[in-house]
Amino acid sequence: MRRTDPRLQIITETLRKPLPEVAPADLITGQHVSRFDPAVNVGEAPAPWSMQVDMLARHVFTALYGRPDTGEQQSPLAQAEDAKRARDLGAEIAALQQGHTDLTSAPWYPARPGDLVHVHYEQAGQCPAFGETYLIAAAADGFLSMQLLCDTLPDGEDRHGMVGCYAVEDDPDPLMELWFEAGPHRLTLVRDGRPVHIGGAR
Protein backbone atom coordinates (compact mmCIF):
# COMPACT_ATOMS: atom_id res chain seq x y z
CA MET A 1 0.00 0.00 0.00
CA ARG A 2 1.35 3.43 -0.90
CA ARG A 3 2.22 5.85 1.87
CA THR A 4 0.04 8.92 2.20
CA ASP A 5 1.70 11.81 0.41
CA PRO A 6 3.65 13.86 3.01
CA ARG A 7 2.46 17.08 1.35
CA LEU A 8 -1.05 16.35 2.67
CA GLN A 9 0.33 16.08 6.21
CA ILE A 10 2.17 19.39 5.81
CA ILE A 11 -0.99 21.14 4.61
CA THR A 12 -3.02 19.63 7.44
CA GLU A 13 -0.55 20.68 10.13
CA THR A 14 -0.25 24.18 8.67
CA LEU A 15 -4.01 24.66 8.74
CA ARG A 16 -4.29 23.15 12.21
CA LYS A 17 -1.64 25.47 13.68
CA PRO A 18 -0.77 28.25 11.20
CA LEU A 19 1.28 30.29 13.70
CA PRO A 20 3.42 29.23 16.68
CA GLU A 21 1.32 31.24 19.15
CA VAL A 22 -2.01 29.90 17.84
CA ALA A 23 -3.63 26.95 19.60
CA PRO A 24 -4.16 23.85 17.44
CA ALA A 25 -7.59 23.68 15.79
CA ASP A 26 -9.73 20.87 14.44
CA LEU A 27 -12.36 23.12 12.85
CA ILE A 28 -11.93 26.12 10.56
CA THR A 29 -14.62 28.72 9.90
CA GLY A 30 -14.75 31.27 7.13
CA GLN A 31 -16.96 33.26 4.78
CA HIS A 32 -18.24 31.73 1.58
CA VAL A 33 -18.17 34.18 -1.34
CA SER A 34 -19.44 33.21 -4.79
CA ARG A 35 -19.24 35.40 -7.85
CA PHE A 36 -22.68 34.05 -8.76
CA ASP A 37 -24.19 34.68 -5.34
CA PRO A 38 -26.82 37.43 -5.73
CA ALA A 39 -26.55 38.18 -1.99
CA VAL A 40 -22.99 39.39 -2.51
CA ASN A 41 -24.03 41.64 -5.37
CA VAL A 42 -26.53 43.48 -3.21
CA GLY A 43 -24.03 44.04 -0.42
CA GLU A 44 -25.20 41.36 2.02
CA ALA A 45 -22.65 39.50 4.14
CA PRO A 46 -21.20 36.27 2.66
CA ALA A 47 -22.54 33.03 4.11
CA PRO A 48 -20.42 31.54 6.93
CA TRP A 49 -19.01 28.02 6.65
CA SER A 50 -17.19 25.56 8.87
CA MET A 51 -15.03 22.61 7.88
CA GLN A 52 -12.86 20.09 9.67
CA VAL A 53 -9.17 20.81 9.23
CA ASP A 54 -8.35 17.43 7.69
CA MET A 55 -11.21 17.73 5.20
CA LEU A 56 -10.11 21.23 4.16
CA ALA A 57 -6.51 20.05 3.85
CA ARG A 58 -7.60 17.20 1.58
CA HIS A 59 -9.64 19.62 -0.51
CA VAL A 60 -6.66 21.98 -0.88
CA PHE A 61 -4.31 19.09 -1.69
CA THR A 62 -6.66 17.71 -4.35
CA ALA A 63 -6.98 21.13 -5.97
CA LEU A 64 -3.19 21.47 -6.12
CA TYR A 65 -1.93 17.95 -6.80
CA GLY A 66 -4.81 15.58 -7.49
CA ARG A 67 -6.25 12.93 -5.20
CA PRO A 68 -4.08 12.01 -2.20
CA ASP A 69 -3.58 8.39 -1.26
CA THR A 70 -6.98 7.05 -0.22
CA GLY A 71 -5.71 3.61 0.73
CA GLU A 72 -6.39 2.35 -2.78
CA GLN A 73 -3.36 1.20 -4.69
CA GLN A 74 -2.83 2.62 -8.15
CA SER A 75 -0.82 1.57 -11.15
CA PRO A 76 2.16 3.73 -12.10
CA LEU A 77 0.20 4.99 -15.10
CA ALA A 78 -2.81 5.95 -12.95
CA GLN A 79 -0.53 7.82 -10.55
CA ALA A 80 1.04 9.67 -13.48
CA GLU A 81 -2.38 10.54 -14.90
CA ASP A 82 -3.49 11.95 -11.53
CA ALA A 83 -0.38 14.13 -11.48
CA LYS A 84 -0.97 15.21 -15.07
CA ARG A 85 -4.51 16.30 -14.25
CA ALA A 86 -3.08 18.30 -11.36
CA ARG A 87 -0.53 19.81 -13.78
CA ASP A 88 2.32 18.52 -11.66
CA LEU A 89 4.92 17.53 -14.23
CA GLY A 90 7.46 16.59 -11.58
CA ALA A 91 5.09 14.14 -9.90
CA GLU A 92 4.05 12.72 -13.28
CA ILE A 93 7.64 11.99 -14.26
CA ALA A 94 8.43 10.67 -10.77
CA ALA A 95 5.51 8.20 -10.89
CA LEU A 96 6.67 6.81 -14.23
CA GLN A 97 10.32 6.62 -13.16
CA GLN A 98 9.38 4.93 -9.88
CA GLY A 99 7.24 2.39 -11.71
CA HIS A 100 10.15 1.54 -14.00
CA THR A 101 12.57 1.31 -11.08
CA ASP A 102 10.22 -0.90 -9.05
CA LEU A 103 9.98 -3.36 -11.94
CA THR A 104 13.59 -3.43 -13.07
CA SER A 105 14.98 -3.63 -9.54
CA ALA A 106 12.77 -6.55 -8.49
CA PRO A 107 14.92 -9.59 -7.53
CA TRP A 108 13.04 -11.80 -10.01
CA TYR A 109 13.36 -9.38 -12.95
CA PRO A 110 13.56 -9.92 -15.92
CA ALA A 111 10.82 -12.34 -16.89
CA ARG A 112 11.92 -15.78 -18.04
CA PRO A 113 10.39 -18.42 -20.32
CA GLY A 114 8.07 -20.57 -18.25
CA ASP A 115 6.95 -17.78 -15.92
CA LEU A 116 3.23 -17.59 -15.25
CA VAL A 117 1.72 -14.12 -14.85
CA HIS A 118 -1.68 -13.71 -13.19
CA VAL A 119 -3.55 -10.41 -13.34
CA HIS A 120 -6.63 -9.58 -11.29
CA TYR A 121 -9.24 -7.04 -12.39
CA GLU A 122 -11.63 -5.45 -9.92
CA GLN A 123 -15.33 -5.16 -10.72
CA ALA A 124 -15.96 -2.19 -13.00
CA GLY A 125 -19.56 -1.16 -13.63
CA GLN A 126 -21.46 -4.18 -14.91
CA CYS A 127 -18.29 -6.17 -15.57
CA PRO A 128 -17.56 -8.55 -12.68
CA ALA A 129 -14.14 -9.09 -11.14
CA PHE A 130 -12.08 -11.63 -13.05
CA GLY A 131 -8.53 -12.78 -13.67
CA GLU A 132 -6.24 -13.78 -16.49
CA THR A 133 -3.22 -16.08 -16.65
CA TYR A 134 -0.43 -15.52 -19.17
CA LEU A 135 2.55 -17.71 -20.05
CA ILE A 136 5.95 -16.21 -20.84
CA ALA A 137 7.74 -18.10 -23.61
CA ALA A 138 10.87 -17.71 -25.73
CA ALA A 139 10.36 -15.88 -29.02
CA ALA A 140 12.50 -14.91 -32.00
CA ASP A 141 15.89 -13.18 -31.70
CA GLY A 142 16.11 -13.57 -27.94
CA PHE A 143 12.83 -11.78 -27.32
CA LEU A 144 9.90 -13.12 -25.29
CA SER A 145 6.20 -13.64 -25.88
CA MET A 146 3.36 -13.53 -23.37
CA GLN A 147 0.31 -15.54 -24.36
CA LEU A 148 -3.06 -15.82 -22.65
CA LEU A 149 -3.60 -19.27 -21.16
CA CYS A 150 -6.99 -18.80 -19.53
CA ASP A 151 -9.31 -16.31 -17.88
CA THR A 152 -12.13 -16.36 -15.37
CA LEU A 153 -14.49 -13.89 -17.06
CA PRO A 154 -17.93 -15.54 -16.69
CA ASP A 155 -19.67 -16.95 -19.74
CA GLY A 156 -22.10 -14.56 -21.32
CA GLU A 157 -19.95 -11.48 -20.78
CA ASP A 158 -18.83 -9.44 -23.78
CA ARG A 159 -15.26 -10.69 -24.18
CA HIS A 160 -14.25 -8.34 -26.98
CA GLY A 161 -11.43 -6.15 -25.70
CA MET A 162 -11.81 -7.59 -22.19
CA VAL A 163 -9.39 -10.52 -22.23
CA GLY A 164 -5.98 -11.13 -23.73
CA CYS A 165 -5.16 -7.47 -24.26
CA TYR A 166 -1.67 -7.86 -22.76
CA ALA A 167 -0.61 -10.77 -24.99
CA VAL A 168 2.54 -9.85 -26.95
CA GLU A 169 4.89 -11.42 -29.48
CA ASP A 170 8.63 -10.80 -29.82
CA ASP A 171 8.89 -8.29 -26.98
CA PRO A 172 12.13 -7.55 -25.08
CA ASP A 173 10.14 -6.85 -21.90
CA PRO A 174 6.62 -8.33 -22.02
CA LEU A 175 5.81 -7.32 -18.43
CA MET A 176 6.40 -3.59 -18.89
CA GLU A 177 2.98 -2.60 -20.26
CA LEU A 178 1.10 -4.84 -17.84
CA TRP A 179 3.12 -3.52 -14.88
CA PHE A 180 2.45 0.11 -15.77
CA GLU A 181 -1.21 -0.18 -16.79
CA ALA A 182 -2.67 -2.84 -14.50
CA GLY A 183 -0.18 -2.14 -11.73
CA PRO A 184 2.08 -4.39 -9.64
CA HIS A 185 -0.60 -4.66 -6.96
CA ARG A 186 -2.77 -6.64 -9.40
CA LEU A 187 -0.05 -9.02 -10.58
CA THR A 188 1.23 -12.32 -9.28
CA LEU A 189 4.27 -13.91 -10.91
CA VAL A 190 4.99 -17.62 -10.51
CA ARG A 191 8.41 -19.05 -11.40
CA ASP A 192 9.30 -22.73 -11.16
CA GLY A 193 6.07 -23.35 -9.29
CA ARG A 194 6.76 -20.72 -6.63
CA PRO A 195 5.30 -17.20 -6.37
CA VAL A 196 8.07 -14.61 -6.66
CA HIS A 197 5.81 -11.55 -6.77
CA ILE A 198 2.43 -11.47 -5.04
CA GLY A 199 0.29 -8.51 -5.98
CA GLY A 200 -1.68 -6.85 -3.22
CA ALA A 201 0.32 -8.60 -0.49
CA ARG A 202 0.47 -6.64 2.76
Rank of each mutant, 00 (worst) to 15 (best):
W179P: 10
P172S: 09
G183L: 10
G193I: 06
L178Q: 10
L178V: 12
P174T: 09
P172F: 11
P174R: 00
G199R: 00
R194F: 07
A182H: 10
I198W: 02
M176G: 03
R191I: 06
L189P: 02
L187V: 07
R194S: 11
L187H: 00
L187G: 04
V168H: 05
R186E: 11
V190F: 06
V190P: 10
P174Q: 06
V168A: 14
G183Q: 13
P195E: 13
P195M: 11
D170L: 02
V190H: 04
A182M: 12
W179N: 05
P172N: 11
M176F: 15
L175S: 11
R191C: 06
L189H: 01
D170I: 00
D173N: 15
G193L: 10
R186P: 03
I198F: 05
E169P: 00
F180I: 03
D170Y: 01
T188V: 06
E177W: 02
G193S: 13
A182K: 06
D192M: 08
D192W: 02
V190Y: 04
G199D: 08
P172H: 10
E181C: 09
G183A: 06
H185K: 05
E177D: 15
D192C: 08
L178F: 14
L175C: 12
P172D: 12
G193Y: 04
V196H: 01
V190A: 09
M176L: 15
R191M: 08
P172W: 11
V168T: 15
H197L: 14
T188A: 08
G183D: 11
G199C: 04
H197V: 07
A182G: 06
D192S: 14
P184I: 02
F180Y: 13
W179I: 02
L187I: 14
E169N: 00
L178E: 12
D170T: 05
D192E: 15
P184D: 03
G199L: 07
F180P: 01
H197D: 09
H197S: 10
D170V: 05
G183Y: 12
D173F: 14
V196R: 00
L187K: 00
W179V: 03
L187A: 08
T188H: 07
V196I: 12
H185M: 10
D171H: 02
L189K: 02
L187N: 03
L178N: 07
G199Q: 05
